[in-house]
């Protein structure tokens, strides 16, 4: 098991912030890719958090879609377009769902947690596909958001959205780092290692798992909300198992060494995907799969292990 030390976390997050400032000057298409990847990266971070407690969530898309649909429904159906209200609602709804599901699921472990969370997320997928008033599989579009009454016009909107996403991602990473250095966060690895010993020591492994699930839900809700704001469109694919599988993949391969690892990892995955698609539109999945295999074979402890290695050397 990888030993993780989160005292260096502020430094990592500062590096992320620096990178995101540089990201502002990327070409439009790549900055947009980065922006949506940050949203997805928050979900991957949520998956990684649960993984520290030995919980592999193959249905994290559930919270992602809830965040996205919360923003979408409030903005498109209820006419509330203030970005702060929308994102708070996204986090709130995902958190409530996390509490409810956390109560139900926190006693499951390993593959059973994975499968049950997958089943729940796919049931939600089925419900959304059935919901003709929400556009079924087509989903629906979301109007531009406002900032305390100010509607950024078309020319500055991409900049404003990017800044919003970047700032919130950094804040979310900081909050997560804070959680990881707290008692409940530190005990996560103990749950994964040996629950019975943890219980003997007087801590409740179920409670630790529960908190991890709820924190992950909140992060994913924010991610879903940011994604909805960025793309202006939500559809049920956000909670399909293939989407959730992508989050698990990033969480695992990015490594659990830092809160910024899944965020950056998700961007790298998206970058590989889009270049593979551009390079070989007929065989991009093969390239993506080969890259995944190569990473698994060559970097057994995830991409983050590259930084560890440098420190040792």
């Amino acid at each position: 098991m990888m030993k993780t030390d989160f005292r260096r976390e502020p430094l990592h997050i500062a590096i992320l912030a620096g990178l995101l400032i540089l990201g502002f000057f990327l070409p439009d298409w790549m900055r947009f890719l980065l922006q949506t990847a940050l949203a997805g990266g928050l979900v991957a971070l949520g998956v990684a958090l649960q993984m520290r407690a030995g919980l592999v969530n193959f249905g994290q898309g559930l919270y992602y879609v809830l965040g996205g649909y919360a923003v979408g429904m409030l903005a498109a159906k209820a006419g509330i377009t203030d970005v702060f209200l929308l994102l708070i609602a996204a986090i709130a709804i995902a958190t409530v769902a996390g509490v409810v599901l956390g109560l139900l699921l926190s006693r499951y472990r390993e593959i059973f947690y994975a499968m049950l969370s997958l089943a729940v997320s796919m049931i939600l997928y089925g419900l959304l596909v059935k919901a003709a008033w929400l556009g079924s599989t087509d989903g629906f579009n979301i109007p531009a958001v406002t900032y305390l009454g100010w509607t950024p016009d078309r020319t500055v909107r991409p900049d404003v959205y990017y800044i919003t996403t970047a700032v919130l991602t950094v804040l979310a990473c900081l909050a997560t780092a804070r959680y990881l250095t707290s008692g409940a966060g530190m005990l996560c690895e103990a749950v994964a290692e040996n629950e019975i010993r943890l219980e003997y020591l007087g801590a409740s492994s179920r409670k630790v798992a529960f908190i991890a699930i709820v924190v992950a839900a909140a992060l994913s809700g924010l991610g879903g909300g940011l994604f909805a704001m960025s793309t202006g469109h939500v559809d049920p694919l956000m909670t399909n198992w293939t989407t959730s599988g992508g989050f698990v993949f990033v969480a695992l391969l990015a490594g659990r060494g830092s809160t910024i690892a899944p965020v950056i990892g998700f961007f790298l995955l998206e970058l590989v995907r889009t270049y593979a698609l551009d390079f070989a539109p007929n065989a991009w999945q093969m390239i993506l799969g080969s890259v995944m295999l190569a990473v698994i074979l060559l970097l057994p402890n995830g991409l983050w292990s590259l930084t560890e290695w440098r420190r040792k050397a």
């Binding site: 592999v56 390993e110 093969m286 993506l288 799969g289 080969s290 995944m292 295999l293 698994i296």
Partner: peptide, 21 residues
């Protein structure tokens, strides 16, 4: 175990495209 799931997922992507090719 979870890593192995991802290995087979990567294999799945590769085989899907291999079939297509």
């Amino acid at each position: 175990e979870v890593l192995m799931v991802l290995v087979t997922y990567a294999l799945f992507l590769i085989l899907e495209d291999a079939v297509k090719l």
